[in-house]
């Protein structure tokens, strides 16, 4: 390879990097420029409870609350189940079966979200409605359970990789100390894999905060705070489902549209700050490197 082609290769790499960076900055800039009108004209009233565009009442608090609750609930269901399943596939299951389990899980992770949404609206919400004898099964809780099913395959396969990547020597040393298998897993393997598992949880959080289609179909789309606030068996609204339902109805450039963009930027800020916090507090690095 000549020096000329090597230079070109370098150019390719550099320009690809610049393009991806520019894309992110562009998205942030577009969101900010478009939401500027909302920040100026509505101001602090954005963080109120009442939403009614014809009266120029733009309170996004109930949607923000819905997003946070749905994400929190779905993670608190999916993370324990996912991590323990990963412990099973990586540590207990004989390795010749692991590949089958893993590839079928990866298949599940690739199912488009609209499919989950349709199953959710046709069967799942009806079951939840009957189970809790509700008027309607389209609730915050339904959306959270559906989301946790959606993010479960991702959590399992990534955690499985994380646990599988812990070098043998740690297991052997722990066994050599005479620990039982569950002690090896709890006190040696999981702490070592902790950083990677945190990364997985962050990824799942991003997906569950950003999921639109499936949530939109099962959550009921009422812009109200649950009464009382911990009653999750009532219809609600998330930022993404609100955007999905209303963004096309608002005229481009109107105040309504601008508030929608503002909701988008709030979502981005939440994800960015959570990523930042997680990276800051879990940056111990991999112990085995």
């Amino acid at each position: 390879m000549s020096a000329y082609t090597s230079k070109i290769g370098k150019g390719y790499v550099l320009s690809s990097t610049l393009i991806s960076t520019a894309m992110i900055l562009l998205i942030l800039a577009v969101l900010f420029v478009n939401s500027y009108g909302a920040i100026i004209e509505v101001g602090w009233k954005l963080f109120t409870l009442k939403w009614n565009p014809p009266d120029a009442r733009f309170g996004i608090l109930s949607m923000l609350y819905g997003s946070l609750v749905v994400t929190f609930l779905s993670l608190s269901i999916a993370v324990p189940v996912g991590v323990f399943t990963a412990v099973f596939t990586a540590e207990i299951l004989p390795s010749k079966y692991r590949i089958y389990v893993k590839s079928s899980l990866e298949l599940l992770a690739g199912i488009p979200s609209i499919i989950y949404g349709l199953i959710g609206v046709a069967f799942f919400s009806v079951w939840i409605g009957e189970l809790f004898s509700l008027q309607s099964g389209r609730t915050i809780f339904t959306a959270a359970v559906l989301l946790s099913i959606m993010i479960l395959p991702t959590i399992i396969t990534l955690c499985d990789d994380a646990i599988h990547n812990v070098p043998r020597k740690y297991r052997e040393a722990a066994r050599g100390l005479g620990l039982y298998k569950y002690e090896v897993i709890l006190s040696s393997i999981l702490p070592i894999a902790k950083t990677d598992i945190t990364g997985t949880v962050l990824l799942a959080l991003g997906r569950s905060l950003g999921e639109t289609m499936a949530v939109m179909l099962v959550i009921g789309s009422i812009d109200k705070m649950p009464q009382p606030f911990y009653n999750f068996l009532v219809p609600g609204q998330t930022v993404t489902s609100k955007l999905g339902r209303e963004i096309a109805e608002s005229a481009f450039g109107s105040l309504h549209f601008s508030v929608m963009m503002f909701m988008g930027i709030v979502l981005v800020i939440i994800v960015l700050s959570l990523t930042f916090v997680a990276q800051r507090y879990f940056k111990t690095g991999r112990l085995y490197e």
């Binding site: 046709a122 009806v126 008027q135 309607s136 009921g220 789309s221 009422i222 339902r245």
Partner: peptide, 18 residues
Amino acid sequence: AGLVVGSNNEEQTAIAQS
């Protein structure tokens, strides 16, 4: 209102399910 839906299809499903 206890539920907000979009298209006619969605409305039909929601009422049939309840």
